[in-house]
Design a protein around this nucleic acid. Structure first.
Length: 480
RNA sequence: CGGGCUGUAGCGCAGCCUGGUAGCGCGCUUGCUUGGGGUGCAAGAGGUCCCGGGUUCGAAUCCCGGCAGCCCGACCA
Protein backbone atom coordinates (compact mmCIF):
# COMPACT_ATOMS: atom_id res chain seq x y z
CA UNK A 1 0.00 0.00 0.00
CA UNK A 2 1.45 3.30 -1.09
CA UNK A 3 0.19 5.46 1.74
CA UNK A 4 -1.64 5.26 4.98
CA UNK A 5 -5.33 4.80 4.29
CA UNK A 6 -6.04 7.13 7.15
CA UNK A 7 -5.43 10.66 6.05
CA UNK A 8 -6.75 13.65 7.91
CA UNK A 9 -8.98 13.71 10.95
CA UNK A 10 -10.94 16.60 9.49
CA UNK A 11 -11.66 14.64 6.34
CA UNK A 12 -14.53 12.87 8.02
CA UNK A 13 -14.43 11.59 11.54
CA UNK A 14 -16.75 8.69 10.86
CA UNK A 15 -14.60 7.54 7.98
CA UNK A 16 -11.47 7.97 10.00
CA UNK A 17 -12.96 5.86 12.77
CA UNK A 18 -14.05 3.14 10.35
CA UNK A 19 -10.61 3.13 8.80
CA UNK A 20 -8.94 2.58 12.15
CA UNK A 21 -11.34 -0.17 13.05
CA UNK A 22 -11.70 -1.91 9.74
CA UNK A 23 -8.77 -1.30 7.45
CA UNK A 24 -7.90 -4.78 6.32
CA UNK A 25 -4.20 -4.65 7.01
CA UNK A 26 -4.45 -2.27 9.92
CA UNK A 27 -5.68 -2.99 13.38
CA UNK A 28 -8.22 -5.59 12.32
CA UNK A 29 -10.23 -5.55 15.51
CA UNK A 30 -13.55 -6.26 13.85
CA UNK A 31 -15.79 -6.67 10.87
CA UNK A 32 -19.50 -6.18 10.56
CA UNK A 33 -22.16 -8.25 8.86
CA UNK A 34 -25.77 -7.12 8.75
CA UNK A 35 -25.31 -4.95 11.81
CA UNK A 36 -23.70 -7.78 13.74
CA UNK A 37 -20.09 -7.59 14.68
CA UNK A 38 -17.30 -10.10 14.30
CA UNK A 39 -14.62 -9.29 16.84
CA UNK A 40 -11.28 -10.56 15.64
CA UNK A 41 -8.35 -11.59 17.86
CA UNK A 42 -6.83 -8.10 18.14
CA UNK A 43 -10.10 -6.57 19.27
CA UNK A 44 -11.11 -9.45 21.50
CA UNK A 45 -7.79 -9.38 23.34
CA UNK A 46 -8.58 -5.81 24.38
CA UNK A 47 -12.04 -6.90 25.51
CA UNK A 48 -10.52 -9.67 27.58
CA UNK A 49 -8.31 -7.16 29.37
CA UNK A 50 -11.28 -4.92 30.09
CA UNK A 51 -13.23 -7.93 31.30
CA UNK A 52 -10.46 -8.88 33.67
CA UNK A 53 -10.09 -5.34 35.04
CA UNK A 54 -13.83 -5.08 35.61
CA UNK A 55 -14.34 -8.58 36.93
CA UNK A 56 -11.66 -8.30 39.61
CA UNK A 57 -13.30 -5.09 40.79
CA UNK A 58 -16.74 -6.71 40.84
CA UNK A 59 -15.40 -9.58 42.91
CA UNK A 60 -13.62 -7.18 45.22
CA UNK A 61 -16.95 -5.47 45.91
CA UNK A 62 -18.62 -8.76 46.79
CA UNK A 63 -20.27 -9.72 43.51
CA UNK A 64 -20.53 -13.18 42.00
CA UNK A 65 -20.97 -14.17 38.39
CA UNK A 66 -24.07 -16.00 37.19
CA UNK A 67 -25.57 -16.89 33.85
CA UNK A 68 -29.17 -16.41 32.75
CA UNK A 69 -31.04 -17.55 29.62
CA UNK A 70 -30.70 -15.84 26.25
CA UNK A 71 -34.39 -16.35 25.50
CA UNK A 72 -36.93 -14.65 27.72
CA UNK A 73 -40.66 -15.44 27.64
CA UNK A 74 -42.34 -12.40 26.15
CA UNK A 75 -44.75 -12.13 29.04
CA UNK A 76 -41.84 -11.39 31.40
CA UNK A 77 -41.09 -8.16 29.61
CA UNK A 78 -44.65 -7.03 29.81
CA UNK A 79 -44.72 -7.12 33.58
CA UNK A 80 -43.02 -3.76 33.97
CA UNK A 81 -44.98 -1.25 31.87
CA UNK A 82 -42.30 1.39 31.37
CA UNK A 83 -39.67 -1.25 30.65
CA UNK A 84 -41.59 -2.92 27.81
CA UNK A 85 -42.54 0.46 26.41
CA UNK A 86 -38.91 1.50 26.28
CA UNK A 87 -37.61 -1.70 24.74
CA UNK A 88 -40.45 -2.81 22.48
CA UNK A 89 -39.14 -1.07 19.33
CA UNK A 90 -35.79 -2.80 19.49
CA UNK A 91 -36.73 -6.35 20.41
CA UNK A 92 -35.97 -9.40 18.32
CA UNK A 93 -38.65 -12.00 18.90
CA UNK A 94 -38.56 -15.76 18.33
CA UNK A 95 -41.98 -16.90 17.16
CA UNK A 96 -41.13 -20.19 15.50
CA UNK A 97 -39.09 -23.00 17.01
CA UNK A 98 -38.91 -26.68 16.30
CA UNK A 99 -40.68 -26.03 13.04
CA UNK A 100 -43.87 -24.66 14.50
CA UNK A 101 -45.32 -21.45 15.78
CA UNK A 102 -44.83 -21.00 19.50
CA UNK A 103 -47.77 -20.38 21.78
CA UNK A 104 -45.77 -17.78 23.61
CA UNK A 105 -42.94 -16.12 21.73
CA UNK A 106 -39.51 -15.66 23.26
CA UNK A 107 -37.70 -12.39 23.23
CA UNK A 108 -33.96 -12.47 22.71
CA UNK A 109 -32.69 -10.61 25.74
CA UNK A 110 -32.07 -6.90 25.22
CA UNK A 111 -31.11 -6.84 28.92
CA UNK A 112 -31.99 -9.20 31.75
CA UNK A 113 -33.89 -7.22 34.40
CA UNK A 114 -37.07 -9.17 33.79
CA UNK A 115 -35.66 -12.65 34.02
CA UNK A 116 -33.61 -11.54 37.00
CA UNK A 117 -36.83 -10.34 38.62
CA UNK A 118 -38.42 -13.71 37.98
CA UNK A 119 -35.60 -15.56 39.72
CA UNK A 120 -35.03 -13.07 42.50
CA UNK A 121 -38.65 -13.70 43.48
CA UNK A 122 -37.76 -17.37 43.99
CA UNK A 123 -34.48 -16.77 45.71
CA UNK A 124 -35.49 -14.15 48.25
CA UNK A 125 -37.64 -14.93 51.28
CA UNK A 126 -36.02 -13.10 54.13
CA UNK A 127 -33.89 -10.04 54.78
CA UNK A 128 -31.25 -12.64 55.61
CA UNK A 129 -31.11 -13.57 51.90
CA UNK A 130 -30.16 -10.01 51.03
CA UNK A 131 -28.29 -8.47 49.43
CA UNK A 132 -28.01 -10.48 46.23
CA UNK A 133 -24.98 -9.22 44.35
CA UNK A 134 -24.76 -10.79 40.92
CA UNK A 135 -23.14 -10.07 37.60
CA UNK A 136 -23.54 -11.68 34.21
CA UNK A 137 -21.16 -11.64 31.23
CA UNK A 138 -23.33 -12.09 28.18
CA UNK A 139 -24.41 -11.01 24.75
CA UNK A 140 -27.61 -9.08 24.08
CA UNK A 141 -29.57 -8.13 20.98
CA UNK A 142 -31.07 -4.72 20.34
CA UNK A 143 -32.57 -4.06 16.94
CA UNK A 144 -31.33 -0.53 16.42
CA UNK A 145 -32.09 1.31 13.22
CA UNK A 146 -28.49 2.26 12.66
CA UNK A 147 -25.36 0.40 13.57
CA UNK A 148 -21.87 1.72 14.09
CA UNK A 149 -18.92 -0.54 14.68
CA UNK A 150 -18.42 -1.17 18.42
CA UNK A 151 -20.59 1.82 19.35
CA UNK A 152 -23.92 0.40 18.34
CA UNK A 153 -24.20 -3.08 16.91
CA UNK A 154 -27.23 -5.33 16.81
CA UNK A 155 -25.53 -7.87 19.02
CA UNK A 156 -23.06 -6.74 21.63
CA UNK A 157 -21.11 -8.22 24.49
CA UNK A 158 -21.45 -6.72 27.92
CA UNK A 159 -21.68 -7.35 31.59
CA UNK A 160 -24.85 -6.60 33.47
CA UNK A 161 -24.85 -6.42 37.23
CA UNK A 162 -28.09 -7.14 39.05
CA UNK A 163 -28.47 -6.65 42.77
CA UNK A 164 -31.26 -6.71 45.31
CA UNK A 165 -31.20 -4.92 48.64
CA UNK A 166 -33.31 -4.54 51.76
CA UNK A 167 -33.28 -0.76 51.75
CA UNK A 168 -33.29 2.02 49.20
CA UNK A 169 -30.26 3.62 50.84
CA UNK A 170 -28.25 0.46 50.33
CA UNK A 171 -29.37 0.19 46.71
CA UNK A 172 -28.43 3.80 46.00
CA UNK A 173 -25.05 3.19 47.58
CA UNK A 174 -24.57 0.17 45.31
CA UNK A 175 -25.62 2.11 42.22
CA UNK A 176 -23.06 4.81 42.91
CA UNK A 177 -20.37 2.36 43.95
CA UNK A 178 -20.55 0.60 40.59
CA UNK A 179 -20.57 3.92 38.75
CA UNK A 180 -17.31 4.65 40.57
CA UNK A 181 -15.91 1.30 39.46
CA UNK A 182 -16.73 2.17 35.85
CA UNK A 183 -15.17 5.60 36.14
CA UNK A 184 -12.05 4.07 37.65
CA UNK A 185 -11.66 1.53 34.84
CA UNK A 186 -12.34 4.19 32.20
CA UNK A 187 -9.84 6.65 33.61
CA UNK A 188 -7.14 4.53 35.21
CA UNK A 189 -7.12 1.63 32.76
CA UNK A 190 -8.40 3.08 29.51
CA UNK A 191 -6.97 6.58 30.08
CA UNK A 192 -10.37 7.90 29.03
CA UNK A 193 -11.61 10.75 31.22
CA UNK A 194 -15.29 10.59 32.08
CA UNK A 195 -17.91 12.69 33.77
CA UNK A 196 -19.96 10.84 36.35
CA UNK A 197 -23.49 12.02 36.76
CA UNK A 198 -27.23 11.39 36.81
CA UNK A 199 -29.16 11.00 33.59
CA UNK A 200 -32.04 13.38 33.19
CA UNK A 201 -35.51 11.98 33.79
CA UNK A 202 -36.12 11.95 30.05
CA UNK A 203 -32.96 9.95 29.39
CA UNK A 204 -33.15 7.42 32.19
CA UNK A 205 -33.34 3.66 31.67
CA UNK A 206 -36.83 2.33 30.98
CA UNK A 207 -38.03 1.04 34.33
CA UNK A 208 -35.49 2.78 36.55
CA UNK A 209 -36.14 5.42 39.16
CA UNK A 210 -32.83 7.10 38.37
CA UNK A 211 -30.01 6.32 36.00
CA UNK A 212 -26.40 7.36 36.25
CA UNK A 213 -23.77 7.36 33.56
CA UNK A 214 -20.17 8.04 32.79
CA UNK A 215 -19.83 10.26 29.74
CA UNK A 216 -16.62 10.51 27.73
CA UNK A 217 -15.68 12.98 25.02
CA UNK A 218 -14.48 11.58 21.72
CA UNK A 219 -11.86 13.36 19.60
CA UNK A 220 -14.55 15.08 17.56
CA UNK A 221 -16.19 16.48 20.65
CA UNK A 222 -19.10 14.06 20.63
CA UNK A 223 -20.18 12.47 23.86
CA UNK A 224 -20.17 8.73 24.43
CA UNK A 225 -22.16 7.14 27.21
CA UNK A 226 -19.55 4.66 28.34
CA UNK A 227 -21.35 2.99 31.21
CA UNK A 228 -24.62 3.15 33.12
CA UNK A 229 -25.82 2.28 36.59
CA UNK A 230 -29.46 2.27 37.56
CA UNK A 231 -31.40 2.66 40.75
CA UNK A 232 -34.42 0.50 39.92
CA UNK A 233 -36.11 1.27 43.23
CA UNK A 234 -38.89 -1.28 43.83
CA UNK A 235 -40.21 -1.13 40.27
CA UNK A 236 -39.08 -4.61 39.27
CA UNK A 237 -39.51 -5.91 42.79
CA UNK A 238 -43.19 -5.07 42.59
CA UNK A 239 -43.60 -6.20 38.97
CA UNK A 240 -42.10 -9.61 39.77
CA UNK A 241 -43.32 -9.85 43.32
CA UNK A 242 -39.88 -10.04 44.87
CA UNK A 243 -40.97 -9.83 48.48
CA UNK A 244 -39.07 -10.55 51.66
CA UNK A 245 -39.76 -10.52 55.34
CA UNK A 246 -37.99 -7.75 57.22
CA UNK A 247 -36.29 -7.94 60.56
CA UNK A 248 -39.48 -6.56 62.04
CA UNK A 249 -41.50 -9.35 60.47
CA UNK A 250 -43.21 -7.18 57.85
CA UNK A 251 -43.33 -7.87 54.12
CA UNK A 252 -41.50 -5.55 51.76
CA UNK A 253 -40.34 -5.48 48.15
CA UNK A 254 -36.62 -5.56 47.38
CA UNK A 255 -34.74 -2.53 46.10
CA UNK A 256 -32.83 -3.42 42.97
CA UNK A 257 -29.99 -2.02 40.92
CA UNK A 258 -28.55 -2.86 37.55
CA UNK A 259 -25.43 -1.62 35.82
CA UNK A 260 -23.57 -2.38 32.62
CA UNK A 261 -20.73 -1.65 30.27
CA UNK A 262 -20.28 -3.16 26.84
CA UNK A 263 -17.94 -3.66 23.92
CA UNK A 264 -18.82 -0.03 23.21
CA UNK A 265 -15.88 0.71 25.50
CA UNK A 266 -13.57 -0.49 22.73
CA UNK A 267 -15.12 2.04 20.37
CA UNK A 268 -14.60 4.72 22.98
CA UNK A 269 -11.00 3.68 23.41
CA UNK A 270 -10.34 3.98 19.68
CA UNK A 271 -12.14 7.30 19.34
CA UNK A 272 -10.33 8.74 22.34
CA UNK A 273 -6.72 7.91 21.54
CA UNK A 274 -6.14 6.76 17.99
CA UNK A 275 -4.52 8.94 15.36
CA UNK A 276 -4.07 9.08 11.61
CA UNK A 277 -1.45 6.34 11.77
CA UNK A 278 -3.94 3.92 13.28
CA UNK A 279 -4.75 2.48 16.64
CA UNK A 280 -3.21 3.87 19.82
CA UNK A 281 -3.61 1.66 22.87
CA UNK A 282 -2.92 2.86 26.39
CA UNK A 283 -0.36 0.42 27.85
CA UNK A 284 -2.79 -1.01 30.38
CA UNK A 285 -5.16 -2.27 27.69
CA UNK A 286 -2.50 -3.27 25.17
CA UNK A 287 -2.44 -7.07 24.81
CA UNK A 288 1.18 -6.75 23.67
CA UNK A 289 3.04 -3.90 25.34
CA UNK A 290 6.37 -4.07 23.55
CA UNK A 291 7.76 -5.58 20.38
CA UNK A 292 11.40 -5.98 19.38
CA UNK A 293 12.17 -5.60 15.70
CA UNK A 294 15.52 -7.22 14.94
CA UNK A 295 17.61 -5.72 12.14
CA UNK A 296 20.42 -7.51 10.34
CA UNK A 297 22.01 -8.09 6.96
CA UNK A 298 24.35 -11.01 7.08
CA UNK A 299 23.98 -14.36 8.67
CA UNK A 300 26.53 -13.68 11.42
CA UNK A 301 24.73 -10.41 12.22
CA UNK A 302 21.48 -12.27 12.37
CA UNK A 303 22.64 -14.74 14.96
CA UNK A 304 24.24 -12.03 17.09
CA UNK A 305 21.16 -9.81 16.93
CA UNK A 306 18.72 -12.64 17.54
CA UNK A 307 20.65 -13.82 20.54
CA UNK A 308 20.46 -10.41 22.19
CA UNK A 309 16.86 -9.90 21.06
CA UNK A 310 15.75 -13.19 22.58
CA UNK A 311 17.53 -12.46 25.83
CA UNK A 312 16.06 -8.95 26.07
CA UNK A 313 12.60 -10.15 25.12
CA UNK A 314 12.63 -12.48 28.08
CA UNK A 315 13.72 -9.70 30.41
CA UNK A 316 11.21 -7.21 29.01
CA UNK A 317 8.29 -9.51 28.41
CA UNK A 318 8.39 -8.30 24.82
CA UNK A 319 7.43 -10.04 21.59
CA UNK A 320 10.18 -10.51 19.00
CA UNK A 321 9.06 -10.00 15.42
CA UNK A 322 10.87 -12.89 13.78
CA UNK A 323 8.88 -12.87 10.55
CA UNK A 324 11.05 -13.68 7.56
CA UNK A 325 10.96 -11.73 4.35
CA UNK A 326 9.67 -8.51 5.89
CA UNK A 327 11.89 -5.48 5.99
CA UNK A 328 12.31 -3.74 9.35
CA UNK A 329 10.45 -0.75 7.94
CA UNK A 330 7.47 -2.90 7.10
CA UNK A 331 7.55 -4.31 10.59
CA UNK A 332 7.63 -0.87 12.22
CA UNK A 333 4.53 0.10 10.28
CA UNK A 334 2.83 -3.16 11.12
CA UNK A 335 3.10 -2.61 14.87
CA UNK A 336 2.48 1.08 14.73
CA UNK A 337 -0.85 0.54 13.04
CA UNK A 338 -1.82 -1.97 15.70
CA UNK A 339 -1.18 0.49 18.47
CA UNK A 340 1.63 -1.37 20.22
CA UNK A 341 2.81 1.09 22.90
CA UNK A 342 6.55 0.52 22.53
CA UNK A 343 8.61 -0.79 19.63
CA UNK A 344 12.29 -1.56 20.18
CA UNK A 345 14.71 -1.56 17.28
CA UNK A 346 17.74 -3.78 17.68
CA UNK A 347 20.42 -4.00 15.01
CA UNK A 348 24.14 -4.80 14.68
CA UNK A 349 25.10 -1.26 15.72
CA UNK A 350 23.15 -1.66 18.95
CA UNK A 351 24.54 -5.09 19.64
CA UNK A 352 28.04 -3.67 19.24
CA UNK A 353 27.37 -0.67 21.48
CA UNK A 354 25.18 -2.46 24.00
CA UNK A 355 22.29 -0.12 23.22
CA UNK A 356 18.73 -0.49 21.98
CA UNK A 357 16.34 2.00 20.36
CA UNK A 358 13.01 2.61 22.06
CA UNK A 359 10.12 4.21 20.21
CA UNK A 360 6.82 5.09 21.84
CA UNK A 361 3.56 5.08 19.96
CA UNK A 362 1.82 8.13 21.35
CA UNK A 363 4.48 10.80 20.86
CA UNK A 364 6.48 9.00 18.20
CA UNK A 365 9.69 9.86 20.03
CA UNK A 366 12.74 7.65 19.59
CA UNK A 367 15.49 7.18 22.11
CA UNK A 368 18.74 5.21 22.24
CA UNK A 369 19.24 3.60 25.64
CA UNK A 370 21.67 1.07 27.14
CA UNK A 371 20.30 -2.47 27.04
CA UNK A 372 20.90 -2.78 30.75
CA UNK A 373 18.40 -0.02 31.36
CA UNK A 374 15.80 -1.26 28.90
CA UNK A 375 13.55 -2.96 31.43
CA UNK A 376 13.44 0.02 33.77
CA UNK A 377 13.04 2.41 30.86
CA UNK A 378 10.21 0.36 29.39
CA UNK A 379 8.31 0.30 32.65
CA UNK A 380 8.83 4.01 33.03
CA UNK A 381 7.78 4.75 29.45
CA UNK A 382 4.61 2.69 29.71
CA UNK A 383 3.68 4.52 32.86
CA UNK A 384 4.43 7.90 31.32
CA UNK A 385 2.46 7.00 28.22
CA UNK A 386 -0.56 5.88 30.19
CA UNK A 387 -0.52 9.19 32.02
CA UNK A 388 0.16 11.26 28.93
CA UNK A 389 -2.76 9.76 27.03
CA UNK A 390 -5.09 10.48 29.90
CA UNK A 391 -3.85 14.05 30.32
CA UNK A 392 -4.08 14.71 26.60
CA UNK A 393 -7.66 13.49 26.49
CA UNK A 394 -8.52 15.50 29.57
CA UNK A 395 -7.00 18.63 28.11
CA UNK A 396 -8.90 18.10 24.87
CA UNK A 397 -12.10 17.85 26.83
CA UNK A 398 -11.30 21.02 28.74
CA UNK A 399 -10.54 22.81 25.48
CA UNK A 400 -13.88 21.78 24.06
CA UNK A 401 -16.06 22.51 27.04
CA UNK A 402 -17.96 25.79 26.94
CA UNK A 403 -20.17 27.48 29.49
CA UNK A 404 -23.47 28.76 28.13
CA UNK A 405 -25.87 31.03 29.95
CA UNK A 406 -28.78 31.16 27.56
CA UNK A 407 -30.61 28.81 25.26
CA UNK A 408 -29.50 30.93 22.28
CA UNK A 409 -25.90 30.41 23.28
CA UNK A 410 -26.44 26.65 23.53
CA UNK A 411 -28.02 26.65 20.10
CA UNK A 412 -25.32 28.71 18.41
CA UNK A 413 -22.63 26.43 19.78
CA UNK A 414 -24.35 23.24 18.70
CA UNK A 415 -26.21 24.20 15.56
CA UNK A 416 -23.63 23.59 12.88
CA UNK A 417 -21.83 20.72 14.48
CA UNK A 418 -21.97 17.46 12.54
CA UNK A 419 -20.19 14.18 12.89
CA UNK A 420 -18.41 14.68 9.56
CA UNK A 421 -17.04 18.10 10.32
CA UNK A 422 -16.16 17.29 13.90
CA UNK A 423 -15.93 20.14 16.35
CA UNK A 424 -18.50 18.97 18.89
CA UNK A 425 -18.52 20.56 22.31
CA UNK A 426 -19.61 19.86 25.83
CA UNK A 427 -21.89 22.76 26.63
CA UNK A 428 -22.33 23.37 30.34
CA UNK A 429 -25.57 25.14 31.19
CA UNK A 430 -28.02 25.44 34.03
CA UNK A 431 -31.06 23.46 33.05
CA UNK A 432 -33.90 22.08 35.10
CA UNK A 433 -34.38 18.32 34.91
CA UNK A 434 -37.68 18.29 33.06
CA UNK A 435 -38.51 16.24 29.94
CA UNK A 436 -39.86 19.39 28.29
CA UNK A 437 -36.42 20.97 28.60
CA UNK A 438 -34.74 17.86 27.21
CA UNK A 439 -37.09 18.15 24.24
CA UNK A 440 -35.90 21.70 23.55
CA UNK A 441 -32.28 20.55 23.54
CA UNK A 442 -33.19 17.73 21.14
CA UNK A 443 -34.13 20.40 18.60
CA UNK A 444 -30.42 21.08 18.24
CA UNK A 445 -29.78 17.38 17.66
CA UNK A 446 -28.09 17.23 21.02
CA UNK A 447 -29.08 15.94 24.42
CA UNK A 448 -28.53 16.36 28.11
CA UNK A 449 -25.75 13.86 28.71
CA UNK A 450 -25.86 13.95 32.46
CA UNK A 451 -26.05 16.07 35.55
CA UNK A 452 -22.52 15.81 36.96
CA UNK A 453 -22.11 14.29 40.41
CA UNK A 454 -19.28 16.70 41.09
CA UNK A 455 -19.78 20.33 40.15
CA UNK A 456 -16.57 21.63 38.61
CA UNK A 457 -18.07 24.95 37.68
CA UNK A 458 -19.92 27.76 39.39
CA UNK A 459 -22.58 26.12 41.49
CA UNK A 460 -26.26 27.09 41.42
CA UNK A 461 -27.78 29.25 38.72
CA UNK A 462 -30.99 30.02 36.87
CA UNK A 463 -32.33 27.47 34.41
CA UNK A 464 -31.84 28.85 30.89
CA UNK A 465 -35.37 27.80 29.94
CA UNK A 466 -37.52 28.20 33.03
CA UNK A 467 -35.55 30.64 35.14
CA UNK A 468 -35.84 28.38 38.17
CA UNK A 469 -32.75 27.96 40.29
CA UNK A 470 -30.93 24.66 39.79
CA UNK A 471 -27.90 23.63 41.76
CA UNK A 472 -25.39 23.06 38.95
CA UNK A 473 -24.73 23.02 35.22
CA UNK A 474 -25.60 19.96 33.16
CA UNK A 475 -23.61 18.52 30.23
CA UNK A 476 -25.25 19.15 26.86
CA UNK A 477 -23.67 17.58 23.79
CA UNK A 478 -24.16 15.68 20.59
CA UNK A 479 -23.62 12.04 21.19
CA UNK A 480 -23.05 8.64 19.65
C1' C B 1 -38.89 4.80 6.80
C1' G B 2 -36.80 9.28 3.93
C1' G B 3 -32.14 11.38 1.13
C1' G B 4 -27.46 10.29 -1.37
C1' C B 5 -23.88 6.77 -3.24
C1' U B 6 -21.92 1.99 -4.68
C1' G B 7 -22.00 -3.35 -6.54
C1' U B 8 -15.81 -5.55 -11.63
C1' A B 9 -9.86 -10.88 -8.52
C1' G B 10 -8.86 -11.73 -1.23
C1' C B 11 -8.85 -5.98 -0.36
C1' G B 12 -9.02 -0.98 -2.71
C1' C B 13 -10.42 0.64 -7.41
C1' A B 14 -10.21 2.06 -13.08
C1' G B 15 -12.94 0.83 -17.37
C1' C B 16 -19.17 2.51 -18.48
C1' C B 17 -20.31 8.75 -21.00
C1' U B 18 -18.81 7.16 -26.85
C1' G B 19 -20.71 -1.22 -26.92
C1' G B 20 -15.61 -4.68 -29.89
C1' U B 21 -10.10 -10.15 -26.30
C1' A B 22 -11.15 -8.40 -18.39
C1' G B 23 -7.52 -4.16 -16.38
C1' C B 24 -4.47 -1.47 -12.38
C1' G B 25 -2.49 -1.09 -7.23
C1' C B 26 -2.00 -3.82 -2.79
C1' G B 27 -2.06 -8.73 -1.02
C1' C B 28 -0.90 -14.03 -2.31
C1' U B 29 2.81 -18.12 -4.67
C1' U B 30 8.07 -19.17 -6.50
C1' G B 31 13.06 -17.46 -7.09
C1' C B 32 16.88 -13.98 -6.53
C1' U B 33 17.91 -9.43 -4.09
C1' U B 34 17.34 -6.20 0.08
C1' G B 35 17.20 -4.87 5.35
C1' G B 36 18.23 1.54 11.00
C1' G B 37 10.64 3.68 8.94
C1' G B 38 6.13 0.44 3.71
C1' U B 39 13.39 -3.13 -0.51
C1' G B 40 13.87 -4.04 -5.69
C1' C B 41 13.45 -7.29 -9.91
C1' A B 42 11.44 -11.44 -12.53
C1' A B 43 7.94 -15.23 -13.26
C1' G B 44 3.04 -16.94 -11.68
C1' A B 45 -2.02 -18.16 -9.45
C1' G B 46 -6.55 -15.77 -8.94
C1' G B 47 -13.04 -13.29 -12.40
C1' U B 48 -20.68 -15.83 -12.82
C1' C B 49 -18.00 -7.74 -14.19
C1' C B 50 -24.59 -8.43 -8.01
C1' C B 51 -29.15 -11.05 -10.27
C1' G B 52 -33.03 -11.33 -14.16
C1' G B 53 -34.87 -9.61 -18.64
C1' G B 54 -34.42 -6.40 -23.09
C1' U B 55 -31.77 -3.81 -27.36
C1' U B 56 -27.60 -5.46 -30.57
C1' C B 57 -23.77 -9.33 -35.07
C1' G B 58 -21.64 -8.29 -30.23
C1' A B 59 -23.17 -5.79 -23.42
C1' A B 60 -19.02 -4.82 -17.52
C1' U B 61 -20.60 -0.70 -20.79
C1' C B 62 -27.10 1.18 -23.30
C1' C B 63 -32.57 0.31 -21.45
C1' C B 64 -36.19 -1.92 -17.84
C1' G B 65 -36.97 -4.62 -13.31
C1' G B 66 -35.09 -6.81 -8.95
C1' C B 67 -31.53 -7.64 -4.93
C1' A B 68 -27.54 -6.33 -1.75
C1' G B 69 -24.27 -3.06 0.70
C1' C B 70 -22.46 1.71 2.48
C1' C B 71 -23.08 6.82 4.07
C1' C B 72 -26.47 10.74 6.05
C1' G B 73 -31.17 11.59 9.17
C1' A B 74 -35.09 9.82 12.70
C1' C B 75 -34.49 5.46 17.30
C1' C B 76 -30.68 3.89 20.98
C1' A B 77 -25.65 1.06 25.34
Amino acid sequence: MAESPITARDKDFATWYQDVVLQGDMAEPAEIVKGCMVIKPNGYAVWEILQRELDTRFKATGHQNIYLPLLIPQSFLKKEAEHIEGFAPELAVVTIAGGKELEEPYVIRPTSETIVGHFFAKWVQSYRDLPLLYNQWANVIRWELRTRMFLRTTEFLWQEGHTAHATHEEAIEETLRMLDVYAEVAEDVMAMPVIKGAKSRAEKFAGALRSFSIEAMMQNGYALQAGTSHDLAQNFGKAFDVQFQTKEGKLDYVWQTSWGVSTRLIGGLIMTHSDDKGLVLPPKVAPVKAVIVPIFRKEEERSAVMEVATKLARELGAHVDTREGQSPGAKFFHWERRGIPVVFELGPRDVASGNIVLKRRDTGSKEVIPQTEAAAKLAHTLEAMQKHLFETAKQRRADNTILANSIEEVESILRDVTAEKGGGKFVMAHLKDDPANDARIKEFKASVRNIPSVDEFDGPGKCILTGETVDRRVVIAKSY
